[in-house]
Computed example of a mutant assay.
Amino acid sequence: MLIDHWPLLGLRLTTPRLELRLPGDEELAALADLAAEGIHPPDRMPFLIPWTDLPPAERARSVVRHHWLRRGTWTPEDWVLNLAVIEDGRVVGLQTLAARSFTELRQATTASWLGVRHQGRGIGTEMRAAVLELAFAGLGAREAVSGAFTDNDASMAVSRKLGYREDGIDRTLSRGRPVTVRRLRLSREDWALRRSVAAGIEGLESCLGMFGLGAVDGAE
């Protein structure tokens, strides 16, 4: 079976409302459809790479290509875990956990998006709490980092709820214009203090080697 060769297919994260897992073909199609419908107002851009400026059909296709690319380039030294977020059987968004040189640095990065019709209901907090549980409790991370443009109040609110601290700024370009990104950092200690969302992990043990870890390395 394919799961014998790619055990990440059996990884499941759960919260009171959500399940997060690698998307199958139908779920990947649903993610693409969701992206085509829209993620943010057209006068705003929350992403460093403005992929949502693509026409709807191309935007959807870029979601599919991105998933295939990240699976195909996975190594224990450089990995990107793109998980479909599912509520009541419906795909509502994408939650990413990524790292380079994780076994040495024990630092992971989070990123995410929700379909516009699923925003404003607290899903963003639950889905990030789920991957933080994976990072800290499952994989033994010391820190998680993220970032948001200065006008992305929703992302900043999620970060504050979960215990992130601001960690300076970066200046970059988006849509050809200068923008400011607020860096955010969450220590293992702050995560433990603000660990308020119940989150579960299933199927991790057989995946640890893909993260460059052994059974002891990934234990909390």
Score class of each variant (00 low, 15 high):
residue 130 A to K: 04
residue 136 F to W: 13
residue 185 R to C: 15
residue 142 R to Y: 10
residue 2 L to W: 14
residue 132 L to I: 03
residue 15 T to F: 11
residue 182 R to I: 12
residue 197 V to M: 12
residue 66 H to S: 13
residue 183 R to P: 00
residue 193 L to D: 11
residue 71 R to N: 09
residue 207 C to N: 08
residue 85 V to R: 02
residue 64 V to F: 01
residue 120 G to Y: 05
residue 22 L to T: 08
residue 177 R to A: 13
residue 138 G to P: 06
residue 123 I to F: 15
residue 78 D to H: 03
residue 144 A to F: 02
residue 21 R to T: 06
residue 73 T to V: 14
residue 203 G to S: 02
residue 142 R to P: 00
residue 93 G to K: 02
residue 85 V to H: 07
residue 106 R to E: 02
residue 219 A to Y: 10
residue 58 E to D: 13
residue 200 G to E: 12
residue 119 Q to F: 02
residue 214 G to R: 10
residue 102 F to G: 02
residue 44 R to W: 14
residue 209 G to K: 05
residue 104 E to M: 09
residue 22 L to A: 02
residue 66 H to I: 01
residue 187 S to M: 10
residue 79 W to V: 06
residue 52 T to L: 12
residue 157 A to V: 09
residue 115 G to N: 03
residue 112 S to F: 13
residue 17 R to P: 15
residue 155 S to G: 07
residue 41 P to F: 12
residue 70 R to M: 09
residue 68 W to Y: 14
residue 99 A to I: 02
residue 185 R to Y: 11
residue 5 H to K: 13
residue 195 R to D: 13
residue 177 R to K: 14
residue 25 D to T: 15
residue 158 V to P: 09
residue 213 L to S: 09
residue 161 K to N: 06
residue 88 D to W: 00
residue 99 A to L: 00
residue 13 L to T: 04
residue 194 R to Q: 14
residue 128 R to T: 11
residue 95 Q to P: 00
residue 24 G to E: 11
residue 8 L to I: 07
residue 93 G to H: 02
residue 181 V to L: 15
residue 164 Y to N: 04
residue 204 L to I: 12
residue 41 P to Q: 07
